[in-house]
Design a protein around this nucleic acid. Structure first.
Lengths: 237, 237
DNA sequence: CGCAGACTTGAAGATTATCAACCACCGTGG
DNA sequence: CCACGGTGGTTGATAATCTTCAAGTCTGCG
């Protein structure tokens, strides 16, 4: 019989992390209290306004994290897939972010304090935080100073690379079970404008997003055109 | 004679952190290799496109982190002051962010791997990462879905609270040695538009930013009007 | 004193939001 | 079996907002 801790150990050793774990570290990790949890599509994985003590690792499925504003808007912070990480929300109010499952999702939850007692895990988590901050910085840059077209293209390019890194499929075509409204909320645009941009990109033949699947027939050209470099997504050798 | 490690220990025990450190933890921390470094105004603290192995803590002075884009724009990610933290940039390309000193700045640099070996420090760093991600999320939300006026007001409110938390001055009035251009680069607006907004806010009597100092004569009203809640800035009791 | 960077103001133009329909798809229940 | 409602997607017209371009002022500092 396998515990969740053992499943977690196998998880961090596999794609997308491929963390090198010594015998001794493996014993430490399997001794940690890890909870594996399954969430149904639509359910809330991490609640807003609630401080959490656990780090969350997405092992399968699609989720998204968002911030709900008083004016009724919803800002999507990121789309989460296998390998994505959300650190414990440890400010006074927790955070105002909610994580919600879009498809069925399985996650591992680890107590942050206990994780901090394991050096290899702590270092690993530093890396995940650092990557998240890179992703956030790129999104901020997109929304601040790129044209809506570039934002949209780069979002898809980024997701494609993350998706491939997690060993979930090809760079040219992948499932993405979100709506045009979601894209708008992630890119600071209205759903209507997203619609028009998608039509334009489709007519140009550069990108297609229909029936929850993204197709990127000429990804390298798009990457060049939008100055996209995936280096911030991957971990150092 | 005091080493940098001892200075660092005193730093984390003081404002804004007030980290509780046991005798034993104190001995571990003072055994860590910490470098205290001073940067002149204008110099680069962390270079772009370079993976770093150290976490950086700002102990005094003003800095800012930005991302330079191929189209010539510069997106300011955050303004850094005492207590602010920048984690080691550990993705394949490092990150594309540069941290530059605006005034003279002193920082502590700690090797990330060694920090991971100290549980109390690792946990502390988790918290700092989590706070940074809250700050980034709020900024993203501002730029995505708030009016330029609200963005500007909220930025100043946030800085005021961080500044006060770091024990650097009052909420109503503080130094902020940046330009209108910097504000534009941080909020996704042109310097010209920032100028007009500042004039408007000044005429309304709600806010004043001149000669590198910010005055907030009626901060509570502004906070109410822009739905600003500082809970994401502070650490849990 | 003069220069460079920062700030200020005006006019014109482009872009994206808003408002208002309408269509297509799908699962449900009468 | 078909009517129905809800969600997501599509399209057009209009209006507000912010950028761009252009010019000029102010300020600190060598």
């Amino acid at each position: 019989m396998w515990s969740s801790s053992e499943a977690f150990l196998r998880f961090v050793q596999s794609k997308p992390y491929e963390l090198a774990v010594s015998e001794r570290d493996a014993r430490i990790i399997t001794a940690l209290p890890v909870v594996e949890r399954v969430f149904r599509a639509g359910s809330v994985i991490v609640e807003e306004e609630r401080a959490t003590r656990t780090h969350t690792f997405v092992a399968s499925g699609w989720a998204f994290s968002y911030l709900a504003m008083a004016n009724g808007h919803r800002v999507i912070n990121d789309f989460l897939m296998r390998g994505d990480f959300e650190g414990a929300q440890q400010t006074a109010d927790g955070a105002r972010r909610t994580i919600q499952a879009r498809t069925d999702v399985t996650v591992f939850e680890i107590d942050a304090r206990r994780a901090a007692e394991c050096p290899i895990l702590a270092m690993f988590i530093f890396r995940l935080f650092a990557r998240n901050s890179c992703v956030a910085a790129e999104r901020l840059a997109s929304i601040s100073r790129r044209t809506p077209q570039q934002r949209l293209v780069r979002l898809f390019l980024e997701i494609a690379h993350r998706h491939e890194q997690a060993d979930l499929g090809s760079l040219a075509r992948f499932e993405f079970p979100f709506t045009q409204r979601d894209l708008g909320d992630a890119l600071g645009l209205t759903a209507i404008h997203i619609n028009r941009l998608l039509r334009l990109l489709r007519d140009q033949g550069s990108l297609r997003f229909q029936h929850r699947t993204v197709e990127l027939p000429s990804r390298p050209a798009l990457a060049r055109a939008t100055d996209f470099n995936p280096g911030y997504i991957h971990f150092p050798g």
